[in-house]
Design a protein around this nucleic acid. Structure first.
Lengths: 157, 157
DNA sequence: CGCTTGAGTGGACAATATGCCCATGCCTGT
DNA sequence: ACAGGCATGGGCATATTGTCCACTCAAGCG
């Protein structure tokens, strides 16, 4: 029942197609790939249930929404409690886009955005405003040289 | 001609709706929001051309595609040449998902994935294998505590 | 070897959504 | 007072979807 967790060649072509031409639709894709529509349907359903396709939601650009400043914070967390309370605190801050536990001094890695540099100060203050956060060091993103992409992984042999 | 770069209340509701229920479609959204279909069409078109909606492509999960290991590298670049050659080098590596120029010692911040820890070594070797890369320090993501999200920014007042 | 199962196919169907057109009403700034 | 931008609501032909079905093919297995 549980399907192979490997990506089929057809899977790859479907993913590539929908990544490059999102508006193509199931029917269009079936035509393009010269397979039956039902096949594309089934593959897509399987890709979704396998979790390969995380979401069909549109991808939004914080910069275009008025948050052009992007920064990465490395948080040092007070030992003992675990990260959960801090993560809950961070979750409540809209400007926190992402958070990872990383190797090193038991730390948290946080991606934040802000309206401008002054606003970034406010965001960082909000991030640090937690009993468990001992220290934070921030690096501002000056330019996005490679925007988030996953297609190469699909195409890769 | 250039539209307001502020998000309307209707804009916000449209974005929120499509983020939470991507399959709702234009007609469904117009029903849900009690506005005319043409309005939703026009808003979406404008959001796309404004760049707020970056793409309608499905969001893929590297982990589900066989790349469960995620890591962040900070690269120190040799002074003088600028980052462009390094970025081109990184672009050619499928496992590089993202790259930013950041403040600090004129550095590059890179998000990579790999099939396992051994594979990560290979990826890092590939990343570092460039004349202009002087040094690299890597932090492995042990857990994603907050997965990439942009909805809070939309909802935020 | 014969059987079962899963996957893909090709076709059909009604229901729905899309793209595109137009005339109208309502603000707002000039 | 008036033009331009935006939203409305309607209509229409076309395209797409969701959902069935019967059939084929290949692989796995007792």
């Amino acid at each position: 029942m549980p399907v192979h967790d490997t990506l089929d060649d057809l899977d790859r072509r479907i993913l590539a197609l929908f990544t490059e031409q999102p508006q193509i639709g199931v029917l269009g894709a079936s035509r393009e790939l010269a397979v039956a529509r039902g096949t594309v349907q089934a593959r897509l359903d399987r890709l979704v249930s396998r979790g390969v396709i995380r979401s069909w939601a549109p991808q939004l650009d914080p910069a275009a929404m008025g948050y052009p400043v992007s920064a990465f914070c490395t948080l040092e967390i007070r030992q003992g409690r675990g990260h959960t309370p801090v993560v809950e605190h961070l979750s409540a801050i809209p400007e926190v886009l992402e958070a990872h536990t990383i190797t090193g001094s038991g730390d948290l890695f946080v991606h934040v955005v802000a309206r401008d540099n002054a606003d970034l100060q406010r965001v960082i203050d909000a991030v640090v405003d937690d009993t468990h956060v001992v220290r934070a060091s921030t690096a501002i993103s000056l330019a996005t040289r490679i925007p988030l992409r996953t297609l190469p992984l699909v195409t890769a042999t």
